[in-house]
C-alpha cells in the first residue's frame, strides 16, 4: 500500500475522487460539500461564549445560521482530521509560520506575514459569507449543479485572486 504514503497524488485522480465523494454526500446525507458557513457558526458560538447567547441570537444572521454544530461543521472538522491522517502517512508534518514562496518573495519577517494573513482571513470570511459560499460550496458543489450564482462566484473568486496575487508578488515583492 505504498501509494497511501505517497506525498502527492495526480490532481486529476484527486479531483475525480472529490467528484465521486460529492455523489455520496448527496445520496447519503442530502448535503453538498461546503465549508464557510461552519466558520460563521463558529464565530457565533465564540460571540456566545464572550457576550452570552441571547445577544448572538438577536442578530438576524445567526437566526438564519444558528451558532451550532451541524453536518457541515463536522465535515470541516473531518477535513482537519483527514488531512492529518494524510500528513501522518506521508510523514510531511512541517510546522512553519512562513510558507516557502512567501519567504522567497518577502523575506523572513514574521509580522508582515501574520498581518497579511490576518487581513486575508478577514476578507475570506467576510467575502465568503457575502457571496454565500466559498471555493468548495460554490466552486465545486454549486458549479456541478450548474448554478448560475456559483459559476459567477467561482469566476469572481479567481478574478479577484489572480489580480491580487499578481499585484502582491509582481509589484510589492
Amino acid at each position: 500500500m505504498t501509494w497511501l504514503n505517497e506525498p502527492l497524488w495526480s490532481p486529476y485522480l484527486v479531483g475525480a475522487a472529490i467528484g465521486i465523494l460529492s455523489w455520496f454526500t448527496l445520496l447519503f446525507s442530502g448535503k453538498s460539500l461546503g465549508c464557510s458557513t461552519s466558520f460563521a457558526r463558529s464565530a457565533g458560538m465564540l460571540e456566545g461564549l464572550l457576550r452570552g447567547r441571547k445577544k448572538v441570537l438577536r442578530k438576524p444572521y445567526f437566526q438564519e445560521y444558528k451558532p451550532e454544530v451541524d453536518w457541515q461543521w463536522m465535515l470541516v472538522l473531518g477535513i482537519f482530521i483527514g488531512a492529518g491522517l494524510a500528513v501522518l502517512l506521508s510523514g510531511d508534518f512541517s510546522p512553519a509560520l512562513l510558507p516557502d514562496s512567501w519567504q522567497a518573495a518577502f523575506g523572513p519577517g514574521k509580522v508582515l506575514r501574520l498581518a497579511i494573513a490576518m487581513l486575508g482571513g478577514v476578507l475570506v470570511g467576510f467575502g465568503a459569507r457575502w457571496a454565500d459560499g466559498c471555493t468548495s460550496g460554490h466552486g465545486i458543489s454549486g458549479a456541478m449543479q450548474l448554478s448560475t450564482a456559483s459559476w459567477v462566484a467561482a469566476l469572481a473568486f479567481f478574478a479577484g485572486g489572480i489580480v491580487t496575487a499578481g499585484l502582491l508578488f509582481r509589484i510589492l515583492a
Binding site: 460539500l33 465549508c35 464557510s36 461552519s38 466558520f39 470541516v76 472538522l77 477535513i79 482537519f80 482530521i81 483527514g82 488531512a83 492529518g84 494524510a86 500528513v87 510558507p99 512567501w102 497579511i116 494573513a117 487581513l119 486575508g120 482571513g121 478577514v122 476578507l123 475570506v124 470570511g125 467576510f126 467575502g127 465568503a128 459569507r129 457575502w130 457571496a131 454565500d132 466559498c134 471555493t135 468548495s136 460554490h138 450564482a149 456559483s150 459567477v152 462566484a153 467561482a154 469566476l155 469572481a156 473568486f157 479567481f158 478574478a159 479577484g160 485572486g161 489572480i162 489580480v163 491580487t164 496575487a165 502582491l168
Partner: peptide
C-alpha cells in the same frame, strides 16, 4: 455573488488559503 466573490478572491490571494484548505493546512 459577484461583489462577495471578488472580496473573497482578494482575501484568498492575501491569505493563500480558502476555508476548506485552511482546515487542512492546520494539520
Amino acid at each position: 455573488n459577484g461583489i462577495g466573490g471578488l472580496v473573497f478572491g482578494v482575501g484568498f490571494a492575501l491569505l493563500g488559503y480558502c476555508p476548506g484548505t485552511m482546515a487542512g493546512a492546520l494539520a
